[in-house]
Nucleic acid binder design. Structure first.
Lengths: 335, 335
DNA sequence: CTGAAAGCGCTTACAG
DNA sequence: CTGAAAGCGCTTACAG
């Protein structure tokens, strides 16, 4: 394995001074066209490409954003990271991935490690709207721009955040069902301490108020984000309250609910409609296909990255900001 | 935002020479316990942590592995990357993620960018066993250790590779069905050019030979890795050949096949058994739950990382190696 | 328009 | 056991 050529070697080969090569590659000062072309050509021949880390040492810019995330979560963190990556690519930035350790202490170390690697900034991508306090504390100590994706900090003063509007998501899902003439809606969430569930149920309630439809508090039940949990909750609801529609706080719950309806001999959507949340791949695979609320992961990711870049470019023009982006209903066969 | 303290400042504050701090942090030479402790304490107070990039410049080791991948694929690349990340963490390495551009030229640039960032090595995580020739060529030109995950290069001379044994996976899936007394097995794959499908069907055939059961070539059909495709293929097979078991080359196909069986009024597994491939989350969500072949992603990821580290530590003791790891059958309700 | 020099934050032989 | 110096590959004022 040959070594990578350095700037010096290129300069020598091209017969120019050493910094000239730097100037050519950075367009950082006028260089005669002839020299520029000559340098570029020799660089190409030698297979030279500037060492980004050495440049980073000199400029204290690494063109790398650290992504700290707490879970390989296919329905939230991965789609957001994918969107960040795509945006980063177009700005010629790279991502360093760091999975957050389970222990609070580890989280601190992860952050330290990231800053020790000269990240220009760090985006923390949470898979849940419930932020771990240890992380908040650790983030506060970082000396570089920090941004939160999918969740917001308890104290808005420190960092930017970009997240989906769970309340509005719950609102439009419920409106969707009510506007189809459904009147006995059930809500199945995860546990009551889950912020996303809380916001989604808030939207559920608001839609009822808005359209002046009464709801039955007994039809709002909690469990966890899994199909079996949704199955059981739906089975009980069907037996006791005969809902004509179910709004599930999550697609896994929705699948479970669908299965329970079918097992109870109910036709979907004729006898009962179902709407999920996440708009995951599941929704198209299961039959009947499942109507679901889509969160704007692409926009969240892109906005996170763009805001980060802006902050890096205009370090002075900054005050913490929280952006909440709307969801949309994707209609399929269960409603 | 205060700046990060440097080694110099720590040295000053601790009243020791500048390199002494370095020696303490690297354990690279004997330092008196008193000095060591004193240095460590002041470092802690100041919040000092060594700059890994500056260290990288001096040592040409960045303790960072570049991960080049071609798709955020939830059933293959992401699980492998997750396993690599976990292993990397235990070795105090970090991962830089780079999604490979669609165009061959972009792939080259991605690789260059990774080497320009002083990655110690690069692991290419493919989501398919069909390797893009442009990538192979680009990899050949890299000047650092390269390793392929999930796929192997056409020319084994250049790089290491670690991949699952698709043939053995097909073999055990088929054995599993045959040993349950099934005798009219169908195989539904993706297209015939897909290497994974080809290997899996080879295992299907071998199992039949091994157990001296005849198979009907008309029951080996191709489509794509989606539920609708599996649905249609299964519907046709059921109408024309009445299989008593279906081995699907993919879980999505398996779900489609299951749906077709149910639509045709067949009981699963009584009338017909189904085995998928990937052991994805789907298998536990769908009812009946789906028996599937699990690929050893954890082992693949860990082995990739460990081999990479070994190569970095023992650069001389290396010849290219291909490792093929066995799959296992995870029994569920469809068989 | 171009060259010579200092510095980014580290490591590591070289002396003592 | 510890210090002073050179170097990793770049960038960027400072001169000319």
């Amino acid at each position: 394995m040959k070594n990578k050529p350095t700037m010096k070697e290129v300069a020598k080969a091209a017969g120019v001074s050493w910094p000239t090569v730097s100037y050519v590659f950075n367009n950082s000062r006028r260089v005669s066209d002839k020299t520029r072309e000559h340098v570029l050509n020799t660089a190409l021949e030698l297979g030279y490409t500037p060492d980004i880390m050495a440049r980073g040492l000199a400029t204290s810019r690494s063109y790398t954003i650290g992504i700290l995330f707490n879970e390989f979560n296919f329905s939230t963190s991965i789609p957001i990271i994918a969107a960040i990556e795509e945006a980063a690519r177009s700005y010629n930035y790279r991502l360093v991935l760091a999975l957050q350790g389970r222990e609070p202490k580890e989280a601190m170390l992860d952050l330290q490690d990231l800053t020790a690697r000269r990240m220009d900034g760090i985006i923390f991508v949470s898979s849940t709207d419930n932020l771990d306090p240890a992380i908040v504390e650790a983030l506060g100590a970082a000396r570089i721009p920090i941004l939160l994706a999918y969740t917001s900090p308890p104290n808005l003063a420190m960092v930017d955040s970009v997240l989906p509007d769970h309340v509005q998501g719950g609102l439009i899902a419920t409106r969707h069902l009510l506007s189809q003439g459904r009147r006995r809606l059930a809500f199945i969430g995860s546990d009551e301490n889950n912020n996303a569930t809380r916001k989604r149920v808030a939207g559920f309630l608001r839609a009822h108020e808005e359209m002046q439809v009464e709801y039955d508090p007994a039809m709002i039940v909690y469990g966890e984000y899994t199909a079996p949990s949704g199955r059981e909750a739906a089975r009980n609801l069907i037996a006791s309250h005969r809902p004509d529609a179910i709004f599930a706080a999550d697609d896994n719950i929705a699948v479970g609910a669908l299965q329970a309806c079918q097992a109870a001999g109910m036709k979907v959507p004729e006898d009962i409609a179902i709407v999920g949340f996440d708009n995951s791949a599941l929704c198209d695979i299961i039959l009947p296909t499942i109507t679901s609320v889509a969160m704007p992961f692409d926009k969240i990711g892109r906005l996170c990255l763009e805001r980060m870049i802006y902050r890096l470019q205009q370090p002075d023009d900054w005050k913490p900001e929280q952006t909440i982006l709307p969801c949309s209903v994707v209609s399929r066969e269960t409603s």
